[in-house]
Amino acid sequence: MKFEELKGLIEEKVRDLGAEVSGKEPNVIEVKVPREKVVEAAMRLRDMGFDHVKAVTAVDYPNERFEVVYVSSSYSNLDLAYFLVNLRTDLPYDDPRMPSLLEVWPSVLYQEHEEHDLMGIVFEGHPRMGERLLLPENYEGIPPLRKEFKVKTEGINA
């Protein structure tokens, strides 16, 4: 399948959700949807054959927004496997919650949990919200991947 063709196809599928579809040659397609529509968009992508999520990335833009990116692709359809579809959504900085996509893609179980643990994003409907995954059980404080969490550094001089 051609890049442009697939991009057009996806655009057609998710247009009524208020999605912005853009592309980066040769194989990355970006789909940006508002957070209320993210589950619906994910379902439509899954029905097109994008059956698993490879990575869930949350990015912190301090005092502005959080961006959550689901990098999905296909295992069952090897024509689609070449393409990566990034489903993106923006969350307001003071209210980082979004619906979990666990029902659509079971493969996000640990990835969403990790972003919750390290970035402090709440995925509603995920059964393990509030539990720790990688951090120690008694960890308290700012989620470490946020920009306001500072790691100490040393200069080049001793």
């Binding site: 059956d51 295992y75 069952s76 090897l78 079971p106 493969s107």
Partner: peptide, 19 residues
Amino acid sequence: DAIRLGVAGPNLRASGVPY
């Protein structure tokens, strides 16, 4: 299940997915 759970590598291929 291998596809649904997004398994990777030889574990995926052992279940018959030629990815």
